[in-house]
Each structure stands twice: as structure tokens, then as C-alpha cells.
Computed example of a mutant assay.
Amino acid sequence: MSDIAKDRTGHSLKNMGSASSLSRKELHGCIKGSLSAVSYVDEPSQRDVASRLTVQMENTYQLGPSKHFPVAIVNHILKDVLTNSLQEEQYEPELCRQMTKTISEVIKAQVKALLVPRYKLIVMVYIGQLSGQSILVGSRCLWNPKSDNFASYVFRNSSLFALATVYAVYFE
């Protein structure tokens, strides 16, 4: 508000009396919008000062995982699941196709139960017939060797082999 407007408002309030002493009828006679009230506290109260002192800012950004991926424990999980699931099985293509899905879900559930924060898990299971042939498995991704990791286990019985791999990629 300009100085001239302040002077006019102050002068009109002095002539009319204080706003609290005016009745509703007298206020209705005034020009609409000519009277306004603004409250302003110059000094902060003790409560405001105390609340400002308790506010603390902290940096929550982490430059790496607080808890690393437990490779040894995951290797043990892979060994147990593959051994228990495939110990007595014979290779049948349709059965093995279904078992890869089931085994990968069981492994994923058990690794998630470890509650390692901020890791994305990729579980891959391969089952094939053991008849003198070989298999080469390769995978590629963007990898941070400081935080990302993997665990892998190979199982064999008289008629089949199984390869299970868990990739743990840290999510920043």
C-alpha cells in the first residue's frame, strides 16, 4: 500500500472511531472494502523460538548400500532349493519347464525374506538334459562392482543339470 493510501485509511479510521466500537449498521454505511484489519506480531513468542531450535535437517542420500548383498547365504539357499527340488527327478521337457518357474519363485521368495534393502533381484533358473552336451550361459547389464553382486549354483543328478543364478542390483 502506498503512503497516501495509508494516510487516508488512518485519517478515515480516526474520524469514524475504532472499528471495534462501530456497530454493524455503521459498518454497512461505509464504502465496501474501505475497512480492513491486519494483525501483525513484531516479536516471536517463546514457543516459536523453541520450535525453530528443534528443527534439524539431515542428509539422507546414501552413496552406497548400508547392507551388502549376502552372497554366501544366497548360495546356501540356491543349493538347498535345487537339491530338495531336483534330487530324485528325471529329465522330462514339459515337467522341467514348469519346475524352472516354480523353483525361481521359491528362490526369489527366500532371498526377499532376507530383507536386504534397495536391491532389485533377478532370478534365472536353467534345467537341461544331461547327455554329454555342454551349455554356455551369458548375461549383460550395467554393473556397479562396488554395490551389485550375484550368486550362482550348479546342480547335477544322473539325468539332468540345473543352473540357478540370482543377480542383485542396487537401486539408487
Rank of each mutant, 00 (worst) to 15 (best):
S18F: 07
Y170C: 01
A162E: 01
V116S: 03
E172K: 08
S2Q: 04
L22M: 11
S34D: 15
L130S: 13
I107R: 00
S2T: 05
L115Q: 11
E43I: 04
L53E: 06
G128I: 00
Y91W: 03
C141T: 06
I135S: 12
I107H: 04
E92V: 15
E43K: 03
T165E: 10
I4F: 11
S12A: 15
S131M: 09
L115M: 09
G33N: 08
N59I: 12
M99V: 05
R97A: 09
A168R: 02
V106C: 13
T102M: 15
F155V: 12
A72V: 15
E94R: 07
Q133P: 02
S152T: 14
G138C: 14
T60F: 14
V106N: 10
V111W: 00
D7N: 13
Y153W: 04
H28P: 02
K67P: 02
L163I: 03
G132N: 05
K14C: 09
A37C: 09
T102S: 14
K6S: 10
V116H: 05
L53W: 00
M16K: 14
Q98K: 11
D48H: 03
V49S: 07
R47T: 07
L115W: 14
Q110A: 13
L13Y: 06
F155E: 03
V55A: 15
L160P: 02
N84Y: 06
E92L: 12
